[in-house]
Simulated assay, not measured.
Amino acid sequence: MPDSRGLRGHPGPPGSRHAHVNLNALAYAADLLLPVIDLGQEKAFTPAGAHRWLAHLLVAVGWDFATTVAAGVTRGLERQ
């Protein structure tokens, strides 16, 4: 069931030390925006309703940002 933030928490596997992950909004947003780094927040929470579209938008913006940075680094290395 979604909480007030529109996210559903997923319990960890039975017997694990980290059976419940607390939502850290900054870490969750960073986890969505940074496609290469896994902070564990994206897997622990599932957005619901309009928040799902916002999460998809953040992932797309993150990939666009990563592609832009990679292109900039590549162009900078070509000049040297």
Rank of each mutant, 00 (worst) to 15 (best):
1 M>V: 09
4 S>R: 13
5 R>F: 10
5 R>E: 11
6 G>K: 08
6 G>S: 00
8 R>A: 01
9 G>V: 06
9 G>P: 06
9 G>W: 01
10 H>N: 03
11 P>V: 12
11 P>E: 07
12 G>D: 00
13 P>Y: 09
17 R>A: 09
17 R>L: 13
17 R>F: 03
18 H>C: 04
20 H>N: 04
21 V>Q: 12
22 N>S: 13
24 N>H: 01
25 A>M: 06
25 A>Q: 09
28 Y>V: 02
29 A>I: 06
31 D>H: 05
31 D>G: 11
32 L>P: 09
33 L>T: 05
34 L>A: 04
34 L>C: 11
35 P>M: 10
36 V>D: 14
38 D>F: 08
39 L>N: 02
39 L>T: 03
39 L>Q: 05
40 G>K: 01
42 E>Q: 08
44 A>P: 07
45 F>S: 07
45 F>Y: 15
46 T>P: 14
46 T>Y: 03
47 P>W: 02
49 G>E: 09
49 G>S: 01
49 G>Q: 12
50 A>D: 13
50 A>Q: 03
51 H>T: 15
51 H>F: 06
52 R>D: 04
52 R>E: 12
60 A>N: 07
60 A>M: 02
60 A>T: 13
61 V>S: 12
61 V>E: 05
63 W>T: 02
63 W>R: 15
64 D>I: 12
64 D>W: 09
66 A>S: 00
67 T>N: 15
68 T>K: 13
68 T>R: 11
69 V>I: 11
70 A>P: 14
70 A>K: 04
72 G>W: 05
73 V>S: 11
74 T>L: 12
74 T>Q: 00
78 E>N: 03
79 R>G: 00
79 R>N: 07
80 Q>P: 10
